[in-house]
């Protein structure tokens, strides 16, 4: 390969691409679940079923992408569900007050990242556990929702309704919503950032070993603050998508969503301690959650709590898998 002489024997051990194993496992799982669906219910093979999964979970996907950044650095962001709700609430409220849609969009998109930035600063400068800081952020944002209004606010704005109802489809009648396209755009941008930019690579380095990253001269603080800001931005976009979807803002919507998001990211193969994972895995993780839901609705006889039970089991299995890989991969 090179002209250098061979003083070190090449590694002879067969090398499975360890870091890809969890993602491959998720992919396999997804295919199996889809297979089960198709074999049980004829309607399941309809492409629209998959499209619906994306339509119903577009906002979840966007938020999960942000969470992937945070978890890759070894952190956690518990505030995402509340920030999603707060963004939807603020949009609904401002629209109701008659502000133009464009201005509302800008404001709504600024709130999440600002909160993320503040949380990131608190985590970095005061050296507080992300768990605690974002827990505080979660209560704050949820409080703001009820502060704005105790009950849900409908959205009647023209732009919002258009975004909500627009269907982008093929001639055979299958379609997706605009939200899905936005979600895909977010995924592509995020994947690019993680794979090809310094910010993205620093995220992996910090998740691998923060102390080393610091001694290698990488901007530890800046990167940490950036990931919480990115997560805030993704939550804001997610909030807007959710308001497109429901055409309202409700103070108690998306309660506990942060847990679904974390589950999706982990099932997607990102290691909770940081340093390993892909956005593509997160997409698969979200799909797994969505397909489970769909399977259970198709069945009809099963209680929707089964979704939670299955997700719980899967989560456990995947963390176990990561652990097993982690032990062998030092």
């Amino acid at each position: 390969m090179t002209t250098g002489s061979l003083t070190v024997p090449r590694r002879t051990r067969f090398r499975l691409p360890r870091r890809q194993v969890p993602v491959l496992a998720t992919l396999a799982l997804l295919l199996v679940m889809y297979g089960i669906g198709v074999s049980q219910y004829t309607a399941f093979s309809n492409v629209q079923v998959i499209f619906n999964v994306f339509i119903d979970n577009g906002f979840l996907l966007v938020v999960a992408v942000g969470m992937t950044f945070v978890i890759l650095t070894g952190g956690i962001d518990l505030s995402v569900g509340s920030v999603v709700a707060m963004t939807a609430m603020v949009s609904a409220d401002l629209l109701q007050k008659g502000l133009p849609a464009a201005l509302v969009l800008v404001i709504a998109l600024l709130i999440g990242p600002t909160l993320g930035l503040l949380m990131g600063c608190a985590i970095h400068f005061f050296d507080i556990q992300p768990f605690i800081v974002t827990l505080a952020g979660m209560f704050f944002a949820r409080g703001m929702c009820t502060f704005i209004s105790g009950s849900s606010i409908p959205i009647t704005d023209g732009f919002w309704t258009r975004m909500s109802q627009e269907r982008i489809g093929d001639p055979r009648g299958n379609f997706v919503s605009i939200s899905v396209l936005i979600a895909f755009a977010v995924v592509l941008v995020a994947a690019y950032v993680l794979a090809y930019t310094r910010l993205g690579r620093n995220v992996y380095a910090i998740g691998g070993n923060p102390q080393s990253a610091l001694l290698m001269g990488l901007p530890l603080g800046r990167t940490r603050i950036a990931v919480y800001t990115i997560s805030g931005l993704c939550s804001a976009i997610g909030g807007i998508l959710l308001s497109f979807y429901t055409l309202s803002g409700a103070p108690l919507i998306a309660v506990g969503m942060e847990l679904d998001v974390i589950a999706a990211v982990v099932i997607g193969g990102t290691v909770l301690t940081g340093g390993s994972g892909y956005v593509f895995g997160t997409v698969l993780g979200v799909l797994v959650l969505g397909v489970i839901q769909t399977l259970i609705t198709f069945d009809g006889s099963l209680n929707s709590w089964w979704t939670k039970i299955v997700i719980g089991g899967l989560l456990f299995a995947f963390i176990l898998l990561q652990r097993l890989i982690g032990i062998r991969y030092k």
């Binding site: 870091r19 090809y196 930019t197 310094r198 690579r201 620093n202 992996y204 380095a205 998740g207 691998g208 070993n209 102390q211 080393s212 990253a213 001694l215 290698m216 001269g217 990488l218 340093g275 390993s276 030092k330």
Partner: peptide, 22 residues
């Protein structure tokens, strides 16, 4: 003091990778 989760090449160049338009 390196990051064992990153590739050998990346450990050498991280923070000063050759880039094209970012």
């Amino acid at each position: 003091n390196l990051c064992t989760n990153l590739s050998v090449a990346e450990n050498i160049f991280i923070g000063r990778e050759p880039r094209l338009l970012g």
